[in-house]
Design a protein around this nucleic acid. Sequence first.
DNA 1: GAAATAGTGTCTGTAAGACATTATATT
DNA 2: AATATAATGTCTTACAGACACTATTTC
Lengths: 244, 244
Amino acid sequence: MAQKKTPSPLDAPEFARPFTTVDVVIFTVRQQALQVLLMQRPDGAQEPFPGRWALPGGFVDVALDEDLQACARRKLAGKTGVDSPYLEQLGSWGSARRDPRGWSATHVYFALIPGQALTLEPGGNAADVAWFGVDALPDEGRLAFDHGDILQAALERLRGKVEYTSLPAFLLAEPFTLPQLQQAYEIVLGRPVDKSGFRTRMLSAGFLVEAGHVEGGTRRPAMGYRLADRRAPVVFPRTFSPRD
Amino acid sequence: MAQKKTPSPLDAPEFARPFTTVDVVIFTVRQQALQVLLMQRPDGAQEPFPGRWALPGGFVDVALDEDLQACARRKLAGKTGVDSPYLEQLGSWGSARRDPRGWSATHVYFALIPGQALTLEPGGNAADVAWFGVDALPDEGRLAFDHGDILQAALERLRGKVEYTSLPAFLLAEPFTLPQLQQAYEIVLGRPVDKSGFRTRMLSAGFLVEAGHVEGGTRRPAMGYRLADRRAPVVFPRTFSPRD
DNA sequence: GAAATAGTGTCTGTAAGACATTATATT
DNA sequence: AATATAATGTCTTACAGACACTATTTC
């Protein structure tokens, strides 16, 4: 086939460049449920998907953002005030049709933040920002753009990784106890986990550091733990339930 | 903090948009080694990284490409002639400095293609395209842009997933034998794998379909197999070597 | 029959899953 | 003392890893 010389967007400024956005799927555990942060789209007539719920995000600002991760961190800090969450790239979605305004590509990150870190409602304008249980999404899950698909992919990634990593530890404020950690696993996975095996796995993985007993509980106090390394999760050699 | 109203790139056309590219990391097994396809950058004075080796890729063409995956498929078919490989999104890299021409973001895919599918050298202009063993990269691995980092990430992803998936099957032409598949695993992982356990794992996973004995070998012929589903790999419940 | 490769059998150690039991706190 | 939760112990089973063995082809 003839290898057509692709015109460069640099040579021809009017050559259409896709626009570039970053979106963040922010998970937390609140009220015994896995929840996600959504924003309501503005109502203007020019706006795409007016009034619909969407993932927090927006255009990359080439003047502000050094790189994609910094852009994601900026948007996350703006909405939640949390500045050092677990942040992982999920992937990117780009097509001619996902945004009615034209060809667009979004780079998606997903973040895990402790529920206890959110004492006050996020941001200055709290009205258009809200937490939703992942099983109780607004508009029957029909979010703006392709954000429904993206959220679905984020959930699959999270639940998949939780089977064999220490990810749920990033959903808890330190220090946390092993029962609390187990509960976080059970909430994300949506099924009970055996206590004995759970404890052996967590302690033998060596990613927890003892931090003294936690008082204030109702009955016998449990040992508190911190993460030895808050930057990355630990990978276990096996999944939780090999087969049904 | 004051939530500055971000100017929209749509309202102001002169607002700088990052430019958008797609790159593909194409792996195959040739000459008993894991190899990757690289292209040599053109030599023009205006060109970034002239003469350096780079991953195949380039600008998204909003007129040609329906979405990112289609763009990756177009670039892959153009370089290799292979049109239905295993293709998975690896991630995206975007920053102000990765391309000297300005803020850019690239969406990276990685592909696995059978070595036997490449009877002739790829493309029309074969001079600037070549296969390299991943342990024998040109320029000591100092590729154009951040492609060295990207290739490293692709290798980690591939080797990581090979520990617990059937991915190496996509590096072989059908029908293939179990000894061939085992060899593909050993080449990618860089270590020997026990035959007995390997066979049990592969056959019990149920993703292989018998396709008659393969002759032409030197000694006893082996059973040939095809993939039941060429679209996605199978995930095993455990990794190959739990721990050292 | 020798040699080389394909394929199977056997043993063992480790660890997960299930469940029972003990330990330590509050009221 | 009763109770609730934290933490540990025991038993069984499944399976990976190691390695020996058998099977089937070519020369």
